[in-house]
Design a protein around this nucleic acid. Structure first.
Length: 276
DNA sequence: AGCCAGGGTCTGC
DNA sequence: GCAGACCATGGC
């Protein structure tokens, strides 16, 4: 990959395994919208970004080198060797096929609190409505960072609110879970950053102390927010898919990259509805 | 109208 | 450990 500064933009040439639609609209993050074909905008780490792909070049508009190297290079997981991972997973024929369906998905390195909060909201819910609730959360309680764009509100901010305040989200029974998570994070009872370098099981055990956080939400937080690439969140699609495709047991070649395999399988299962 | 959605808690065996 | 009721809301 070549990184080129051009006017006020940053251009990525010769990227491998990076497709915007696959990455931004695969159900791992909920704040990206497509403006037109291959042109997206969203907010992460308190920054607004417009990013597009054209003629094999991915352009981050109005982006400084400082923001690119401090935020976006990490956010888009640009230093990970996806082609190599895809080769490893391809030792299994089914995973190879799933990897082809999901070509270009990268695991975003989101802010831990945003990932935790988003996946609490995701439970027993569908993706369009998750996006709506997250957007209302940001509009009402985040900071305005540009015209019509808001940061994801901090745990401290949410912890200062009441259930009545959160009613505007229309998040249903999840509001009390959001509040408990915010209080445990804001008080320091749970320090999310410390979970980053813990063994997976130890980190998960911490997260499930939060009311309304079970194994699946914990694993999503660890995979999408805390760089645990071997976490394997088991949602309804994954349970159905692993049963049908692998007799319930994930192939051994996926052990080290279970989280990436999970995204591939999730995407593959939804695209095919497991009818093939 | 009833079912389902990137689940979790609580109760009862 | 495992099954089943229940939980809010909205789209189909």
């Amino acid at each position: 990959m070549k990184i080129v500064k051009n006017a006020g933009n940053i251009e990525l040439h010769e990227t491998e395994n990076f497709v915007l639609a696959q990455t931004l609209d695969c159900g791992q993050a909920f704040r990206w919208q497509e403006l037109e074909e291959d042109l997206w905008q969203g907010v992460a780490f308190g920054k607004h970004l417009k990013i597009g792909a054209k003629d094999g070049v991915i352009t981050l508009y109005d982006t400084t080198e400082e923001d690119f190297y401090e935020i976006w290079q990490n956010y888009f997981d640009l230093e990970r060797d996806y082609p190599e991972i895809l080769r490893t997973l391809s030792a299994n024929e089914v995973l190879k096929t799933a990897g082809e369906y999901a070509y270009g998905i990268r695991i975003l390195r989101q802010e831990p609190w945003e990932a935790l909060c988003s996946f609490i909201i995701s439970q027993n819910n569908n993706i369009p409505r998750i996006k709506g609730i997250v957007e209302r959360l940001c509009e009402n309680f985040g900071d305005k960072i540009a015209d019509g764009f808001y940061s994801f509100p901090s745990a401290q901010k949410i912890a200062s609110l009441t259930l009545e305040d959160l009613a505007i989200l229309r998040s249903g029974f999840r509001a009390k879970y959001i509040l408990d998570a915010a209080k445990k994070v804001a008080s320091g009872e749970i320090v999310l950053e410390e979970l980053r370098n813990m063994p997976l099981d130890t980190a998960r055990a911490e997260l499930v102390k939060i009311y309304g956080v079970g194994e699946k939400v914990a694993d999503c937080t660890l995979l999408f927010g805390l760089s645990h690439i071997n976490a394997f969140p088991k949602d309804v699609w994954i349970k159905r898919a692993t049963q049908k495709l692998f007799d319930g047991v994930l192939p051994e070649c996926a052990t080290d990259y279970a989280g990436i395999a999970q995204q591939y399988i999730f995407h593959y299962a939804r695209m095919t509805k497991l009818e093939i």
